Amino acid sequence: MTLLHIETSTKNCSVGISRNGEMLCLCEEYDDNYGHSEKLHQFVNWALEGAEISLKDIDGVCVSKGPGSYTGLRIGVSAAKGFCFGLNIPLYSLTSLEILAESQIDKGFDLIIPMIDARRMEVYTAVFDGNGNQLSEIEAKILDETSFQEFADKKIVFVGDGVEKSKSILNLPNAEFILDVHPSAQFMIHLAEAKVLQNLQEDVAYFEPFYLKEFVAGVKKA
């Protein structure tokens, strides 16, 4: 099974190609300006070249459905659906938080708490155990000094771009804070393989990103 992986939920535009659970090629770049629309298809082409295959060799596409950047998710999901329609191949999806949690499994932590910045003091988050099993629903959580105090006796790792603002206010002595890890195609491979084995395909025609919160357009600054 050869899979194309697309992750665009944050400022990291990430594309990977795997075969039978092994990464063949990874192309990604972290961009503060969210240049996903210009880079995504170029990264797909580079990944195909690096893997020494063509689009017709792709058996399925796995895309990050969010939550995260509204624009980034629309770009990634639209591309994934286009590939699936054009090639007549199945679509699989993962949440951005389970992808982020995958980066920290089996590292000796009791709990993994990924955080994606949702602006101000709010983050998209959920709680996972040390093996990556999701223990709570995904939520948009406003952080304060009482957040996650019920886990004060646990060895916790917080990971993602929402960690920077949480580190200064969370009083958790057994916690580690990892800021420089982002949702990436490299963390999608094993999760995607599990979806394939369970035949958990999405309906390509009706699949939409998981925004969690409704989009509210702001006024463009002068």
Rank of each mutant, 00 (worst) to 15 (best):
Q149C: 11
A140C: 12
I156N: 03
K81H: 11
S78P: 08
Y124S: 04
L111Q: 06
L97D: 10
A80G: 05
D106F: 07
E122V: 15
Y92H: 03
L143Y: 05
A140N: 13
G160S: 00
A118H: 10
L135F: 11
D161P: 04
E139L: 09
V159I: 15
K155Y: 00
G108I: 04
K141L: 15
D106W: 00
Y92W: 05
G160M: 02
D144S: 11
L111E: 03
A79S: 15
F128I: 05
D153C: 10
M121N: 12
S78Q: 06
K155E: 10
N131H: 11
R120H: 14
E139N: 12
A80S: 15
G132F: 10
S103H: 05
I99R: 06
Q149G: 05
V157I: 10
I142Y: 13
T146A: 00
L143V: 10
R119V: 09
K154L: 03
I105R: 09
D117M: 04
E137G: 10
V159T: 08
M121T: 08
I116Q: 06
C84K: 12
A140Q: 03
E122L: 12
C84M: 11
S96D: 09
G108N: 06
L97S: 00
D161G: 05
E145F: 14
A126W: 12
T95F: 08
D153G: 09
K141S: 07
D129K: 13
V123R: 06
L100N: 03
E122Y: 09
P90G: 11
I156S: 01
R120Q: 15
S93P: 04
R119T: 10
